[in-house]
Amino acid sequence: MAGLLSGLAVVEASSFVASPTAGLYLAQLGAEVIRIDQIGGGPDFRRWPQAPNGASLYWENLNRGKKSVALDLARPEGRELMQALAASTGQFLTNYPVDGFLAHAALAKRRSELITVRVMGTAQGGPALDYTVNAAVGIPQITGPAELGDTPVNHVLPAWDLLTGAYAAFTMLAAVQHRAASGSGGEYRIPLQDVATGSIANLGMIAEALVTAPRPRLGNDVFGAFGRDFVTADGKRLMLMAITPKQWSGLVAVLGLGEAVARVEAERRVSFAVDEGLRFAHRDALFPLIEASLARRTSGELIPALESHGCCFGGYQSVAEAAHDPALVTANPLFGSAANPSGECYPAASAFLSEPRAPPRSAPQLGAHTEEVLAERLGLSAAEIGRLHDDGLIG
């Protein structure tokens, strides 16, 4: 698995979430990913969350398995080195501005078949972050309980950044395949705003707003299907879902609600057996039945029964609890040990493929591979590298 992209080298000049995520995924699948960093670190080098010593836990996890070259990018000579490195492998990943010194046209003069994958805020080149884009596409207006009225609720997961990063990695591989067939490179731009808007359109939400009506706030109810959180007799909160007929019939059997559900079906002249939309539409009658049944049973009774009937459910827990959960982290082969620049020891994630597994790799110390990469990629001699170091151009 670690060698799926063996032989592919990508230079990355990026910060924050989307573009570094693309580089991370490529590195996890075996590509050589070479980060170009400002001496002393870029704008996200100390980004929260931080270790007690101030090192960024965020930075060292988004940059696992990469190499780091540190340059003084405030000086023309440092930017010249960056341009040469960006073109050196034939693959360049960045979220730097379109028209700066890393413009594709300038880099392609050094290597005509160069592929540049550029993550952007908007297609016009304007700034945008996950949280501003999320606000613009309307998700905060349909998140949270109805009692909030028009008050928006921002969620903490940067979903659009993560989707953009994955799409950028996919685009890089598609561009490499295209070049192998055609011989031509090019610049491929991925605007974060378009990823967000296109994603909600792909889910039918744009059409829904125009063809029917804007979706209301539903709290923890799952739109269009049977799903919500319920509390057991011992205070355990479970998220119960019933998407498929098997999941629904299993849930009804476990909770002993066959007769009660049949009465609702007869009264309302519907059948919940196969149509998840009907279970959602008639949740006003179904939810109270589920609530009453779970209120009489402990989680210790319910969970084994739900598992044996193939039901879909999950318990709520904090991130701290998840970090100690054997199924999720402590006994999950997704996680392993790796040295960290922060000096902290904690489980580190490897590639998401379940088979075959490869252990997680460390993030680089800032500038740890500067001399190696300059010698290998640009053919600089030890004397030349020494001069650059003495001049403060590399770190």
Score class of each variant (00 low, 15 high):
Met1Phe: 11
Ala2Ser: 15
Gly3Lys: 10
Leu4Glu: 02
Leu5Gln: 06
Ser6Val: 01
Gly7Gln: 03
Val11His: 08
Glu12Phe: 01
Ala13Glu: 00
Ala13Ser: 07
Pro20Glu: 07
Leu26Gly: 04
Ala27Leu: 06
Ala31Asp: 02
Gly40Pro: 04
Gly42Cys: 06
Gly42Val: 09
Asp44Pro: 05
Asp44Phe: 03
Trp48Glu: 12
Pro49Gly: 11
Gln50His: 03
Leu57Ile: 12
Glu60Met: 02
Glu60Gly: 00
Arg75Val: 14
Pro76Met: 05
Ala84Glu: 14
Ala84Tyr: 03
Phe92Glu: 00
Thr94Met: 05
Asn95Pro: 04
Asn95Val: 09
Pro97Leu: 03
Asp99Ile: 00
His104Ile: 00
Ala106Ser: 13
Leu107Asn: 01
Arg111Met: 05
Glu113Cys: 10
Val117Trp: 08
Arg118Gln: 06
Val119Pro: 01
Ala123Thr: 06
Ala128Met: 12
Asp130Leu: 08
Asp130Ser: 09
Ala136Tyr: 10
Thr143Leu: 13
Gly144Gln: 08
Gly144Ala: 11
Pro145Ser: 08
Pro145Leu: 12
Asp150Arg: 14
Asn154Phe: 11
Leu157Asp: 12
Pro158Lys: 06
Trp160Leu: 09
Leu162Tyr: 14
Tyr167Lys: 02
Ala175Val: 04
Val176Asp: 11
Val176Cys: 07
His178Asp: 13
Arg179Glu: 01
Arg179Lys: 10
Ala180Asp: 14
Ser184His: 14
Ile190Phe: 00
Ile190Leu: 15
Val195Ser: 04
Thr197Gln: 15
Ala201Glu: 15
Ile206Lys: 04
Leu210Glu: 14
Thr212Phe: 06
Asn220Asp: 15
Val222Ala: 15
Gly224Ile: 06
Phe226Thr: 01
Gly227Tyr: 05
Gly227Ser: 12
Phe230Ile: 02
Arg237Phe: 04
Ser249Thr: 15
Leu251Lys: 08
Ala253Glu: 13
Leu255Arg: 07
Leu257Gln: 09
Ala262Glu: 14
Ala266Leu: 07
Ser271Ile: 08
Glu276Ser: 09
Gly277Ser: 07
Gly277Trp: 14
Leu278Pro: 00
Ala281Ser: 02
His282Thr: 08
His282Gln: 10
His282Val: 00
Asp284Leu: 08
Glu291Pro: 05
Ala292Glu: 15
Ala292Gly: 14
Ser293Met: 02
Ser293Asn: 05
Ser293Gly: 09
Thr298Val: 11
Leu302Val: 12
Ile303Ala: 08
Ala305Glu: 15
His309Pro: 01
Gly310Leu: 12
Phe313Val: 06
Gly314Val: 07
Gln317Met: 15
Ser318His: 05
Ala320Ile: 01
Thr330Asp: 10
Phe335Ala: 09
Ala339Asp: 12
Gly343Val: 11
Ala348Gln: 11
Phe352Leu: 15
Arg357Met: 03
Ser362Ile: 05
Leu366Trp: 03
His369Cys: 05
Thr370Asp: 00
Leu374Trp: 01
Gly379Cys: 09
Gly379Met: 12
Ala383Val: 07
Ala383Arg: 11
Ala383His: 10
Ile385Gly: 02
Leu388Lys: 05
Leu388His: 03
Asp390Trp: 05
